[in-house]
Computed example of a mutant assay.
Amino acid sequence: MGTRCEPRHVNSETSLLTARERFYRRERKSVPASRAFTRLALVDWGMTARADDVLLCVSELATNALVHGVPPGRGFLLRLLPQDGGGLRVELHDSGDGVPAVPQRVTEEPHEGGRGLFLVAELADKWGVGERSPGKVVWCEFAGR
């Protein structure tokens, strides 16, 4: 005589939406690696509606951290935090000095750079900088549906 088991979900909604984080070294391959990590999390969470915006912001924040915020021999922490209502908060923790700001005007061609935080400010619903010792946390948020 067999025992009947009730079906249950292995991954409940709350376990699917657990924050994820990963540490990256100060090297070029960290930017595409952080983007791939974020893409996988977004797919797992079913948050693909604004994936292109989120991925571009992650790329820009990671690039800024490597260029301006991570001293030699260190790295940065990328933290993805699902929010109520289907939103997402992206945080980049680095140990560098300074407070990033959106440039007052976008640089003219053919100069490269200077557009990262401008793009983040345009694509994300909110962004900002928080304190951390040492360093800072640069974050952006995307509202849910």
Rank of each mutant, 00 (worst) to 15 (best):
G2Y: 14
G2M: 13
T3W: 02
C5Q: 15
E6H: 11
R8D: 12
V10L: 15
V10M: 11
L17N: 12
L17C: 06
L17I: 11
A19F: 09
E21K: 05
E21S: 10
R22M: 13
R22Q: 13
R25Y: 07
R28E: 14
S30I: 12
V31C: 06
V31M: 05
P32A: 11
A33C: 09
A33Y: 09
A33G: 10
S34D: 13
S34G: 14
R35G: 08
F37G: 02
T38K: 04
T38D: 01
L40C: 12
L40M: 12
A41P: 13
L42S: 11
V43D: 01
G46P: 15
G46M: 15
M47A: 13
A51C: 07
A51K: 09
A51N: 05
D53F: 13
D53E: 08
V54W: 02
V58N: 03
E60M: 09
E60I: 06
L61Y: 01
L61M: 07
A62S: 12
T63L: 14
A65L: 01
G69R: 01
V70G: 04
P71L: 09
P72S: 05
P72H: 05
G73E: 03
G75A: 10
G75Y: 10
F76H: 02
R79L: 06
Q83M: 10
Q83T: 04
G85W: 09
G85K: 10
G87H: 02
G87E: 00
R89F: 04
R89V: 03
V90W: 01
E91H: 05
H93Q: 00
H93R: 02
H93N: 00
D97V: 15
G98C: 02
V99N: 01
P100N: 11
Q104D: 10
P110V: 07
G113H: 06
G114N: 05
L119N: 11
V120M: 04
E122A: 12
L123G: 05
A124F: 15
A124Q: 09
D125Y: 07
K126Q: 08
G130A: 10
E131F: 14
S133W: 14
K136H: 11
V138R: 01
W139C: 00
E141N: 08
F142K: 02
A143D: 06
A143W: 03
